Structure formats: structure tokens, C-alpha cells
Simulated assay, not measured.
Amino acid sequence: MGSWTRVFNDGKPYLAMVLMQLSYAVMSIIAKSALDRGMSPHVLVAYRLAVASVVITPFAFVLERKSRPKMTLTIFVKIMLISLLEPVLDHTFFYTGLKYTTATFTSAMCNILPALTFALACIFRLERVEIGRVRSQVKVAGTVVTVGGAMLMTLIKGPILELPWTKGRNHHSGRSGTSRVHNKDLVIGALMLIAGCCCWTCFIISQARILKSYPAKLSLTALICFTGTVEGTILALAMEWHKTSVWRIHWDIKLVAALYGGMVTAFALYTMGSVMKKRGPVFVSAFNPLGMVIVAVLGSIFLAEEMYLGRVIGSIVIVIGLYLVLWGKSKDQPQPTPEGTVARADRQTDAINGCIENPNPESITIER
């Protein structure tokens, strides 16, 4: 009985990450379906953040009521600024890119986050590149490979790949579905996704600094969700001021997208925070390509998305670059000393599954 308990405890982090990637994949499919049915990306962001605020705030209020530091005007202004980057602008760019492309393409492009984080950290001198060391050479090579894979996905289409469950269906149903993504839309969507990744990366770098002066991670997340809701609503009102009908929510896929998106955010925050405490950011990041595979399968089944050889090859190239960067980052982690203590080291922002995480294993970030 003890061995089974040990196996279950050891397997919980893996099960948690698989469930998280599955929830992200389902969210991508639901969001894409809602956007294809006319839902505004700006409205979706506002509603999703509102739901996330309602879900997260009670936990922050109760669990950190004694440990929450005093709020100052300076900290509050910083929170407002970073919440504009993520989740408002990041989610807006993400959903706009999703609307112009496909769920599979969007999920694959998100794998450029680790490489982009590394590049921006180097630009802002937050990451030291010792070109004589193998780990730095691998991280630079992984960044170049990832960018090349993203360009390959965007510019090269290739022949359609027939899957067992889509054989004979793609060419017929795709005409009125997701296959109408033209090259122009694909480029616009790719640029939107890259812009969203840049916002997310800047947010993570900024969040790492704010946590030093406001270490209440759950309360910080709730404040970011709340201020993001206000800012996202203002942005949506400005962008959709002539379309009051876009705010109407009925009992349809649009309501599901708003509610499910908020709950996924809360679930992901708890899951990643718990797993990162035990296994670290590299472990979490390594599961990101799994979400891409799940989205590709679900997208081809429920959205009739066509898979092209060029985009599959580009996705594989991106994943190779991802793991090169993650390998290099793993070598930056402090190694245990013979006495069992952990050596101190400066650690930069790392990337997650999906997505990016803060280098502090106990940090919590907003996720898609």
C-alpha cells in the first residue's frame, strides 16, 4: 500500500501538468469557436478577467489577510502599469491573433516565449551571456532556432496532411471553416501573437521586481486581475464604442468562453504555483508542447482545422528551440552542495508549458 501511495505522490505533478495543458487546449478551442461566431476579442478579455477576479479575490482576501503588506501609491501605480501589459494587451493580442489564424497555429507560436524572454532579458542586461560557456551557446542557438521555426510556420504552408479522423472531410468542411485563413491573415495573426508574447515577457520581467516590494503573490495576482478588468473594459469600450451589441451574452459558446476562461486562469495559477514549488520552472515549461499537440488534435476534430506539412515542420523546429533554451536555463539553476544546502544564484525569468513563469518557484502569474 505504501508503494502505491509513493507512486501516486510522485505522479501528481505529472498529472497536474497534463490536466493544465488539457484545460488550456480546451480553452483555445472554445475561444476560437466564440471568436469565429463574432465575439469581440476585446470583450472576451474583459469578461474573462472579470470572472478571474471574482474567483481569485476571495482566496487572496482570506489566505493572505495577515501576511499582506501595506499598499502604497507607488506600488499601486506599478500594478496598474504591468496589468496593462498582461493580461490586457497580451490577451488582446493573443485573441486577435487567434481570430486571424487557427488554434493550432496560435498554440505553436506560444512556444517562442522562452526564447523571446531570453532575448529581451539580454537586451535589458538581466541575463548574462557568457559566450564561452556551452549553456550560453545553447540558449543563443535555441533562440535562433525558435525564431526560424516561427518564420517557417508563417511563410511556408506545404501540402495538407490527412489524419485518420479527418480523411475526406477537410476539403469539404474546411471551405467554410478554419481553412479560410489566407496568407495575409496569417501574417497579421503571427505579428499579433508575437506582440502578445513581447507584452507577456515584459510583464514577467517587471513582476519579478514588484514581488520584491509586494511579496503577497496571491493578492498581487488578484489586484492585477481587478485592475486588468477595469483597463480591459475601458479598452473594449474604446474599440467597440459603435457596437453595443458585442457586449450581449446569451446561453451560447460566448458565455462558456468567458466563464471557462476565468476558471482556467484560477486553476492554472494554483496548479503552476504548487508544481513549481516542488519541481521548478523548467519542469513546468517542458509540458508546453503537449498543449500544442492536444490543440492540434482537438482543432482538427471540432473546428475542422487543416494541418499543413510546413506548419508541422515549423512547430517541430520551435519545440527543438524551446528545449535548447530550457536545457541552457536548467544549467543556470543552483546545484546542491555536499551538505545538502542549495547554493545561491541570480536567476532570470523562465518560460512555462504553454507559456512563461516567474523564476521564483513560488511566484504566480496570469496565464492564458
Results as ranks from 00 to 15, higher is better:
residue 5 T to Q: 10
residue 7 V to E: 05
residue 12 K to G: 00
residue 30 I to L: 13
residue 34 A to G: 08
residue 37 R to M: 12
residue 42 H to N: 14
residue 45 V to T: 14
residue 48 R to M: 13
residue 59 F to P: 04
residue 68 R to N: 14
residue 70 K to M: 08
residue 75 I to K: 07
residue 76 F to C: 09
residue 81 L to P: 00
residue 85 L to N: 03
residue 85 L to T: 05
residue 86 E to I: 00
residue 89 L to N: 01
residue 96 T to P: 02
residue 99 K to H: 12
residue 103 A to H: 07
residue 106 T to K: 01
residue 109 M to W: 10
residue 115 A to F: 06
residue 124 F to Y: 05
residue 124 F to V: 04
residue 126 L to M: 10
residue 127 E to P: 05
residue 130 E to I: 02
residue 130 E to G: 01
residue 132 G to F: 01
residue 145 V to M: 06
residue 147 V to R: 00
residue 148 G to R: 05
residue 150 A to H: 03
residue 158 G to K: 02
residue 162 E to K: 10
residue 177 G to F: 11
residue 179 S to H: 07
residue 181 V to L: 06
residue 187 V to A: 11
residue 195 A to Y: 04
residue 199 C to V: 03
residue 199 C to P: 04
residue 206 S to R: 07
residue 206 S to V: 03
residue 208 A to I: 10
residue 216 A to C: 11
residue 218 L to S: 04
residue 236 A to V: 01
residue 248 R to S: 12
residue 251 W to C: 01
residue 260 Y to M: 08
residue 261 G to M: 06
residue 262 G to A: 10
residue 264 V to C: 08
residue 265 T to L: 11
residue 272 M to P: 00
residue 283 F to L: 09
residue 287 F to H: 08
residue 291 G to R: 04
residue 307 M to S: 12
residue 309 L to M: 14
residue 310 G to D: 09
residue 326 L to D: 05
residue 331 K to H: 14
residue 335 Q to M: 14
residue 336 P to V: 10
residue 344 R to T: 11
residue 362 E to N: 08
residue 367 E to R: 00
